[in-house]
Design a protein around this nucleic acid. Structure first.
Lengths: 335, 335
DNA sequence: CTGTTAGCGCATTCAG
DNA sequence: CTGAATGCGCTAACAG
């Protein structure tokens, strides 16, 4: 921290007192400071490039205008970014700033991180996860205003902003159903991930409403798994007319499998992804269900900031809707 | 900021003065405070859960132990994350914390962000970019200790941490050359991106050393472009035996194209990617050149922190080497 | 209308 | 060995 200009400097330059400077610059001058002096203060501040020291303000006001973000994974994949961006921009709008600590996998360091954040007097805490996770906030975390982002408290005590995975699973399947498909295979993610079960529930509901039974195969999350299982499913006797995938990367794998087998998409088989992965879905023309990461980040900061004022958070899950993206990978079945 | 326990509270609890507390907790107690009192202080601090208020410390020490990170894009893609993670972890090691502001594309807000950061008395500034970019730091930025991450100052005045793109392009091509390929096509990125030219230079050098001429086709960065150009290149009369791609997504597109054309990889054609994209390359078994994002983040913080002490930054580019990843997508040519 | 004072929490003098 | 005093930069209350 180099030598900075203080309100004292401005006061001297303008020939007034420090409190006069403070009042003028904080809009508390009306009916208190003469117009000439107000002008003098403003000009002096401008000339000197005065910027109030927020550290000093924080100490005095007992509020740091700072939110601590902690995560063991946000900083790893493609989705943490937009979430952070949403949070950062929303925070900036309210003149807040994000203090970010990411351990990139070492969850054992979380306690240490929370400590560092609290020592810096953050006004609130966000725990953010890359993929939807159950996370039980430790007591030290719960004692501060806090919210979970893309995570939920299994005990339901803390509030978590998540997207509507059940509805998402439902909508993904409807993409196929609405086009007339009756023979559908779902390539699901791994059961260790919470979202897998929820999407599956939505999927089953959609199937039930249509009065048909589908097949679910545990696949995983990566493109090579999509290639493997996609190949197996598409070269079988009972080849389905539509495939819903765990995510867009898996769907890309299925596209690859179809290509190798000489099958056209969507003429011979329709494919639906999940995530609306910005690196995959638009380029491949994948119909998919999006996860509004950015919006979730905005929402979390919104709620957290709100809870700083009065309304305390209700607990449980705040559900953000999942948008359906219709692109070219779905068509009516040919048989 | 809820009611917090202060050093005053600890002093009262331990029955000593505030200065005694300060000395004990800062290791300045030897030969100054009696052992009994030292113990009393430590226990009282523990019991009360005392955590020194870093805002107050900052005000006093004139150093916030905080680094401002600003970016218009880091928060968007898959690579900003690891960079941030490296930076965050390295900073934490030195008891620093990252204040992150990402505009997610709105570069016009940078000035506003820098202001917010400076008002918070950050000790240093990092400008981070998702993909290597030229960025001329504004004066207000240059006045503080600063460094660019995955970016460089066209004027060379400021220091930027970048990876060795020329060498990367060289190595990518060598992957093919070393396997015996003599008929190579390069699918390059768009010329607006600095990395494109650098990789191309390395590519040409490798070709020249091998005494052969290759073909370069401007392709772009997305999987659909790889599919398009891959198809065109692979179905042509003069089909090459090896293809080097702008990145792993393009390579995935080429793989798709090969599959559709009934060509096997690597038997019929070898493919090399770039980036070592964690979502693509390992799963597809892509031989590729990695970009050490995490390491770059570490390096930037390292240098910045170092420059806070004494040694000022040299200016120009600090180049981090690019690792070669050999996987299964390259084999000797069949003809 | 303006200037002075006090105190946010801390670490460092300097007297005792 | 310890306690009181000082100042970091700011704003609100209060006295002039």
């Amino acid at each position: 921290m180099a030598r900075k200009v203080t309100s004292q400097d401005v006061a001297r330059e303008a020939g007034v007192s420090r409190s006069a400077v403070s009042m003028v610059l904080n809009g508390r001058a009306e009916g208190a400071i003469s117009a000439v002096n107000q002008k003098a203060v403003r000009e002096a501040a401008e000339r000197l490039g005065y910027r109030p020291n927020r550290i000093a303000q924080s100490l005095r006001d007992q509020t740091s205008h700072t939110i601590g973000v902690i995560s063991d994974s946000i900083v790893t994949g493609a989705f943490g970014g937009p979430m952070l961006a949403g949070a950062s921009v929303r925070a900036a709008e309210s003149d807040y700033v994000l203090l970010v600590m990411g351990s990139d996998g070492r969850t054992d360091r979380n306690a240490e991180f929370i400590d560092a954040l609290l020592a810096r007097q953050v006004d609130g805490l966000i725990y953010a996860a890359e993929g939807m996770t159950a996370w039980a906030p430790p007591r030290i975390f719960r004692r501060e205003p806090h919210i979970l982002l893309n995570a939920f408290d299994p005990s339901g005590g803390s509030t978590g902003v998540v997207c509507d995975e059940v509805e998402g699973g439902y909508r993904a399947t409807c993409l196929l159903l609405d086009a007339g498909h009756r023979d559908i295979v779902a390539l699901t993610g791994t059961p260790d991930v919470e979202a897998t079960g929820r999407r599956s529930a939505g999927h089953q509901r959609a199937l039930a409403e249509a009065g048909i039974r589908g097949r679910e195969l545990v696949c995983g999350w990566e493109i090579d798994r999509g290639l493997d299982l996609g190949t197996r499913v598409l070269e079988a006797e009972d080849r389905p007319t539509g495939v819903v995938c765990a995510n867009d990367r898996v769907a890309a794998g299925v596209l690859l499998a179809a290509a190798r087998l000489g099958l056209r998409v969507p003429e011979d088989v329709s494919v639906v992804g999940y995530d609306d992965d910005p690196n995959v879905a638009p380029q491949l023309g994948l119909s998919t269900v999006g996860i509004p990461h950015r919006e979730m980040g905005v929402r979390a900061v919104d709620l957290l900031l709100g809870s700083l004022g009065e309304a305390s958070l209700p607990g449980g899950e705040v559900v953000v809707p999942t948008p359906v993206m219709r692109r070219g990978s779905v068509a009516p079945p040919s048989r």
